[in-house]
Design a protein around this nucleic acid. Structure first.
Length: 260
DNA sequence: ATGACTCAGGAACTGAGA
């Protein structure tokens, strides 16, 4: 079972690239972030035509996440526990009945948090704490769990071309990395790092300043998996070439393959 | 050295992104 995540930076702007990539990569499950539209504006038809079931948690203008799956999406749940007043669409959970049993998948878009001296940063940190609380509950189920998405966290200096440029940034501040590590410490595996220690395993290149041409990237899109999923991990990768396509997102897809 | 781009909303620009 191939499970992928991709921050598309507007699903409507990216529809051509998204469908081309779906045909090429043939993922079974896809977690999308930053779809930037309401549910009824999501381009369901061209994606369903490729054999996918679609679940959407949209929002006007900002954020928005979705799940695509060739197998049915069951127990779909929108929003992250821990703050009933949070209206930002950043979290979508569902269960996919795979050939070897259920796999629980979450598409998440963790807050950016910049600038750190505003209310945006404590919102980010609290959001990670809420994700930890959620994960604690789900890990009790002892089932394959995949938390995939744009975490807006650079876990280590090896995950940035130029780490010095990020030291005061919400993506790389010590508190950010410590909380991300606390999430991992619950017993999750960073699937990309489990299969590769490459120093340029980036998933994001800024549109500005020729970042792509200089390979000035960062790794901020992650697939964290429970032990029951990690035991079935056979491959993981980043589809870097997609960044060179026409009208690219600033993020590229990352994916894992689980043994059936 | 500085700025350098792309998106939604809505009709010239702002805010957000990372």
């Amino acid at each position: 079972m191939l499970i992928a995540t991709w921050n598309v930076n507007s699903v409507r702007q990216r529809l051509e690239g998204l469908t081309a990539w779906l045909k090429e990569r043939q993922p079974d499950v896809v977690c999308l972030q930053e779809i930037k539209c309401m549910d009824d504006a999501f381009p369901r038809e061209p994606i369903e035509a490729l054999g996918y079931n679609v679940a959407v948690h949209g929002q006007k203008t900002f954020n928005g996440v979705a799940l695509l799956s060739k197998l049915p999406l069951e127990d779909v749940s929108r929003g992250l526990i821990g703050d009933d007043d949070d209206v930002q669409a950043r979290f979508l959970e569902a269960v996919v009945a795979g050939p070897s049993g259920a796999v629980r998948v979450v598409s998440l878009y963790l807050p950016n948090g910049n600038p750190p001296d505003t209310e945006k940063y404590p919102y980010k940190l609290k959001w990670i704490d809420r994700l930890i609380a959620f994960s604690l509950e789900r890990l009790k189920l002892e089932e394959p769990l995949v938390l995939a998405g744009d975490y807006n966290v650079i876990p280590t200096a090896a995950d940035a071309k130029n780490p010095a440029a990020w030291v005061n940034d919400a993506l790389f501040l010590p508190q950010t990395r410590a909380r991300f590590q606390a999430l991992i410490n619950l017993g999750l595996t960073d699937a990309l790092r489990a299969v590769s220690d490459a120093s340029d395993l980036y998933t994001f290149w800024d549109y500005q300043a020729g970042a792509w041409q200089k390979n000035n990237g960062i790794r901020i899109d992650h697939l964290l998996v429970s032990a029951q999923a990690a035991d079935r991990l056979v491959a993981a990768g980043v589809d870097k070439h997609v960044r060179a396509w026409e009208k690219p997102s600033d993020h590229v897809p990352a994916w894992i393959e689980l043994r059936n």
